[in-house]
Nucleic acid binder design. Structure first.
Lengths: 227, 227
DNA sequence: CTAGCATTCAAACGTTCGTTTGAACCGGGT
DNA sequence: ACCCGGTTCAAACGAACGTTTGAATGCTAG
């Protein structure tokens, strides 16, 4: 799991990354062949192996290009909040907003490929391949630790274990919301265009997450008798 | 999208379905070849095409075998609740419990393959393939309509559109929780063994979902100004 | 016993996969 | 003018893919 810096982005590299991002989202990693990928990018078949080394390394590069800046943005938003609070505790809802904001905003970037990426990302948390999941986990780890610490300071009375679970649930809700945008319509009745409005999405999602995070704690006996 | 009844389960068919369930979970649909699948099942390579017709039809059969009974169980649980209530409204938390219970219980069935299936299912909601997602959607549709109606009766003052979104969020949280069990550990600190205790999982998940579902409604101006 | 049918089997079908090869191409520095 | 490192290219590599074939097998009804 090498976390080295990315190579300089030549024109060919960028075209490959853009095509990969879109095709991986539409057909998955294994469902996207190097031939269709290079054809879409308008480059030679051998270009991927020349510039990235292998298909797997290309997948890694696709995530690295977007995920590093996105998590940096999240951490920056959290830093800003803490500076404004001047050492005081943060509102849980504000922390949630700092986390979901940068990803939700990407779904409005249809032309730049951000929407493709964010849907690809939402799906990849549960990818069958161990290596892929480990890669995502490694890229997320720093931001995750940072937000966990912020929640702990914001909710000092919540048991650590309960907090971890509720973060897990919140993360899942976000991941699914991102991945399922425009895809599954298990429940009829959503206006499709609303799925691309980041602020509307945030206005619906954040209260849901905040309420879940702050749900009344089941008293100890409930958990004990279940175990 | 044919919704015909399943064929009788001969021994060979069952062995193929069991092997497929496990391998699809571990490596995905495209990552599982007919050769490794039939080898694991201990049957001839041609058996899948003989008994199911094609790989895609096998995938469909894998989901049909488990999903139909599971959704029937969900609906039965809801029927029972409504009978007990004698025409009165149901508690939202009870409806949630009727929905998540049957799926959570499957994660304790490690030997029978239920755990494999439920993790496979959780991931498949966001599968790249349109056909796969449509299949899942079709298999879920009857239960989904039933539960939507139950929530509408239980929460008569919630706007329909808001309810649809919150069901969407709840569904996503469940799907992710099922799929990510034992896989991603983005947030450190979960005791792994807790992930296989259905009652403990339910005791943690249901309060989170119920709180999210009942979150205070953002007043109309918030949504309007976002749009 | 045997005719008929469902099932199993080894082998091969044609296609597509990710990757590699070695030559061609191109620009800038000496 | 020359060469050279980086890049692109057409072509081919061996392997693996889902599926099909036609003969062999086992079982059951007449």
């Amino acid at each position: 799991m090498s976390l080295r810096a990315v190579k300089p982005l030549t024109d060919t590299r960028v075209r490959i990354l853009d095509a990969a991002e879109e095709l991986f989202m539409q057909h998955g990693f294994e469902g996207t062949s190097m031939r269709t990928l290079t054809a879409k990018a308008g480059v030679n078949l051998a270009a991927v192996n020349y510039h990235f080394g292998s298909k797997h390394a290309l997948i890694e590069a696709v995530f690295r290009r977007r995920l590093d800046p996105m998590n940096a943005e999240r951490i920056a938003a959290l830093d800003r909040l803490e500076k404004e609070a001047g050492g005081g505790p943060l509102a849980p809802e504000a922390i949630i907003r700092a986390f979901v904001g940068p990803s939700l905003r990407l779904i409005e970037d249809a032309k730049g490929g951000g929407r493709n990426f964010i849907r690809l990302l939402g799906r990849t948390y549960t990818d069958p391949s161990k290596e892929i999941r480990h890669l995502i986990g490694a890229l997320y780890a720093p931001a995750m630790e940072r937000f966990k610490a912020a929640f702990e300071r914001s909710l000092p009375h919540m048991p650590r274990e309960e907090l971890v679970w509720r973060m897990h649930f919140m993360f899942g809700t976000l991941a699914y919301t991102l991945a399922a945008t425009d895809t599954v319509h298990l429940i009829a009745g959503c206006k499709p265009e609303d799925r691309y409005d980041a602020r509307l999405l945030e206005a619906r999602l954040v209260p849901f997450l905040a309420a879940g995070l702050l749900a009344p704690l089941a008293d100890a006996s409930d958990v004990k008798k279940a175990a």
